[in-house]
Design a protein around this nucleic acid. Structure first.
Lengths: 156, 156
DNA sequence: GTGAGGATACTCGGATAAGCGTTGTCCGAGTGCCGACGG
DNA sequence: CCGTCGGCACTCGGACAACGCTTATCCGAGTATCCTCAC
């Protein structure tokens, strides 16, 4: 089980975008961290589809945050890139077993499925409780000049 | 992000094995739920490597639980099949960014990595707190004859 | 000097290939069972 | 009748392919900019 690498990239990019007023093209964000530009662009597209970012085409265009950092949770970014489905997916194998009812709703009744879902719910709750603004605050508390450095690097 | 299907199979199999005294071959467990026998065997091998199950070769052989259900948590089974690594993996992209230190331990210092790890920790804690005995109790409370039905199906 | 028009360069966006992990399959090594055989 | 031996069937275990998703790349559609030119 492995989360898409785009999640990490997107989170860093969102923070950087919040620290910059003007739109930033994907190619420049990619140059910051030595990432493949076209692929990073693909991930940012997903953020646009989710309403987290806005895209501006043409010269002086690029991506920018649609709202403010406190309106976006870690869960929002994860769902935007990974989709809304759970990692554990009940395939209702009990239906084929002894005493199994083909039309029973096993994802909602099987004890195993419920336990796994409860654990994922705890994960999602933790992600939803933490906004990008919280993360940004942590970063700036630990390295107050981080935003300035990013601004300097992105506005060359 | 998708968890291996083997986790679901292994959890169901562990419960069934606990309800049966004698070793059960993988082929019979697979027949219960219409699963590919050889592939299920592969998953059970992972449980053996993790010390959750024991395997007995030869006729009248098969798999059985190494200990009791309350000694095995959901996390144990997940780790046995998925490995110990986190789903979110910090690749230290900050090291290549402005003000990045190539030798800094970013997985332990980057605010994004820490937040994601905290969420996964909540998930793991929930999984570790729930033993297979708890799940079995839930099953038998909801369907008291489940163990009998499995016993009847497996001891044909 | 000023406004219009067009070429241009830059952006996103989706369609199109490679890499890798999960899924699935196969055959060999080992082991206990069962029957045959000799005492 | 009882002990021993050999064949056998059954099991796990690891090595070997197929599929699907993540990763990566490319080119086209659209747009703001800037230069040129006519008035």
């Amino acid at each position: 089980m492995r989360m898409s690498q785009g999640v990490e990239w997107a989170l860093h990019c969102c923070l950087n975008l919040a620290w910059i007023a003007a739109p930033v093209p994907a190619s420049r964000l990619a140059a910051l961290y030595d990432l493949p530009p076209a692929y990073l662009n693909k991930q940012l597209q997903a953020l646009v589809r989710a309403g987290i970012c806005e895209s501006i085409p043409g010269p002086r265009g690029g991506f920018r945050l649609a709202g403010t950092l406190d309106e976006v949770s870690l869960l929002d970014v994860v769902v935007a890139l990974e989709g809304p489905e759970d990692a554990f997916r009940c395939t209702s194998i009990l239906a084929a077993g002894p005493g199994g009812a083909p039309d029973a709703n096993y994802p909602d009744s099987c004890a195993i499925s419920l336990s796994m879902r409860r654990a994922e719910l705890a994960w999602r709750r933790e992600l939803a409780a933490r906004s990008l603004a919280d993360v940004s605050d942590d970063v700036l508390r630990h390295a107050p000049d981080a935003a300035d450095r990013v601004r300097a690097a992105l506005t060359n």
